[in-house]
Amino acid sequence: MSEKVLEVKNLIVHYETQDGVAEAVNDVSFSISAGETLGLVGETGAGKTTIALTIMGLLPKPAGCVISGEVLIDGRNITETSRNRAKQRKNDRMMRRLRGNDVSMIFQDPMSALNPVMRVGDQISEVIRLHSSASRAVATQKAMEMMELVGIPGVRFKDYPHEFSGGMKQRIVIAMALACNPRVLIADEPTTALDVTIQAQVLELMNDLKRQFNTSLLMITHDLGVVAEMCDKCAVIYAGQMVEHGTVEHIFNNAQHPYTQALFSALPSLDKDVDRLKSISGLMSDPMDLPPYCTFYERCDARCHRCMELDPPLTESEPGHFVKCVHFMKDNGAPSPKEGAAAAEASL
């Protein structure tokens, strides 16, 4: 594998609110190499977007704080865990240079990501002018090229966002994000707000551009179909923790964590006929009140007595495939998942 462009190490992020501390991200680590795509999958509130915002240095202040951990872009740490004001300001200044240049982000809703009273062309050239010494004319030229690249005629340079459809707005946002040829691109549900036929167009465009620029992509989504289409690796997030991590082949052909399995079986399929969907009851644990043991315990089909005794670490079950489940720990004294499920059924 080539060098790691983005590395997240043992990241812990909390939101400190009046009602208490929400443990949004708990000890998450992953890395992305050049040109690679990692899919981050999970439910609403699992902490996916918080991870993205931490990498971008855009956590809402003062509630969001990085408690510990590191985010490295090209080996350079960009998080500041200290509460010291001066240090934070210095870090903010550095982030402003990095953001848009080395790492940029595509947001879910293109309408709220664009400035409604600014011409789209100016919005793209603004990014270029901020990060290079390009003159206005050169930046305009480059912005038009970017627009053509994402399939929008350059003559629409002077149009305002409301004159574009949803799919085209998302293309503008992509053009903006890629204008400075960043090493890392974070896409937070880039196609959720789009129709399927438009989604197909945008995904294809992203795949082409990724190959062309050799950009590393962090793809945040709740749609496993999108992951299958776009990603090389996949990480499943549950209650701020990574519960399964591996290549897409590992996740799609040999899902091991009960939560990942539940996600797959809850999807209505186009190929098979099922009378009733399999769903698990209950809700994700409240991040304000996480249990000291396995966070998925309450909803798990394969739970056993050991699950309540410890918080299982992420264990390598096969080379490159990590699972956070008691049943995959070595010498855990717990029955295998199948036996566990049988025991759970018997006890009901």
Binding site: V196, A200, A228, E229, E249, F252, F264, L270
Partner: peptide, 13 residues
């Protein structure tokens, strides 16, 4: 046909 083919399917095979 286009609509059906545009859906991302959660399977690698």
């Amino acid at each position: 046909k286009a609509l059906l083919s545009a859906i991302p399917v959660p399977s690698l095979n």
